[in-house]
């Protein structure tokens, strides 16, 4: 069996997820390179191979030009995997979708706001533009989950994301719940798979992995309000990583 060729491409993102791909234990990296051939990876190599089987896409789609590029990649790739929060849910980029272009451009770019190359439209997940075969969520991704997905793809098995929320991993680690320390947390509605890394270090889960399939949104809003959050702060928790909605693409 010849090694599958894999390629990485980035759109609107910080490229942190690709750094996580590289941030492996040495033996894992060796095993990875034995199993696949990397033909295009701006963060790591200078080759720009255009012949690949699996494309990993980091970043959200936020300009018409991005659409053309991602469609071309989709045509070439046998499998297309969205890598990280921006690619899976629109991520932090989609926060801007609730403001007018003028407002967010002035806020972010100040005196350069009029530069034409800074024009963008509503940020959207890759799946809003092309078919995505699989998603590896998270800001950044969990490097072990990346390896798990690669293994599944190599074995021809559909990779599985956990269907349960972060609380499961949190309780398996016997963590003190943030709610019991008088803080709040999005863990009850957020898809697990990160090993509850934020609560394990005493930080709230902010929902970077997106929601579970059937999140109890009303209950989460009630619990946040009960713990003293204003209606506005409740919304901020929901929109930090999960602000994108289908209507954004029509505006």
């Amino acid at each position: 069996m010849s090694k599958p060729k894999i390629a990485f491409f980035d759109f609107t993102s910080c490229e942190g997820c690709q750094l996580e791909v590289l941030n492996q234990e040495p033996q894992d990296m060796i095993d990875l390179l034995n199993a696949v051939e990397i033909v295009n990876f701006r963060e790591a190599i200078s080759d720009k191979g255009q012949d690949y089987d699996i494309a990993f896409i980091e970043g959200s789609i936020s300009r018409p030009a991005d659409e053309t590029r991602i469609k071309k990649i989709r045509r070439q790739a046998k499998l297309l995997v969205a890598l990280g929060a921006c690619a899976c849910t629109g991520g932090l980029n989609a926060i801007k979708n609730k403001y007018s272009a003028e407002d967010y451009k002035n806020y972010v770019y100040k005196d350069k706001a009029h530069y034409e190359r800074l024009d963008s439209y509503a940020a959207r997940p890759v799946s809003a533009v092309v078919k995505v075969d699989f998603e590896i969520p998270g800001c950044p991704i969990n490097r072990f989950e990346f390896l798990k997905v690669v293994k599944s793809l190599l074995l021809g098995v559909t990779p599985q994301l956990p269907e349960y929320p972060v609380c499961v991993e949190c309780k398996m680690k016997d963590n003190v719940c943030l709610y019991q320390r008088g803080e709040v947390c999005m863990g009850p509605v957020t898809r697990a798979g990160c090993d509850a890394i934020c609560p394990s270090f005493g930080e709230a889960c902010t929902g970077c992995r997106g929601f579970v399939t059937h999140p109890n949104i009303n209950a989460q809003k009630d619990v946040l309000a009960k713990h003293g959050l204003s209606a506005e702060d409740v919304m901020l928790n929901f929109t930090m990583f999960n602000n994108f909605s289908k209507e954004d693409t029509t505006r």
Partner: peptide, 8 residues
């Protein structure tokens, strides 16, 4: 209606 089905 109030439950997260979180398994805790």
């Amino acid at each position: 209606d109030k439950c997260f089905a979180c398994g805790t």
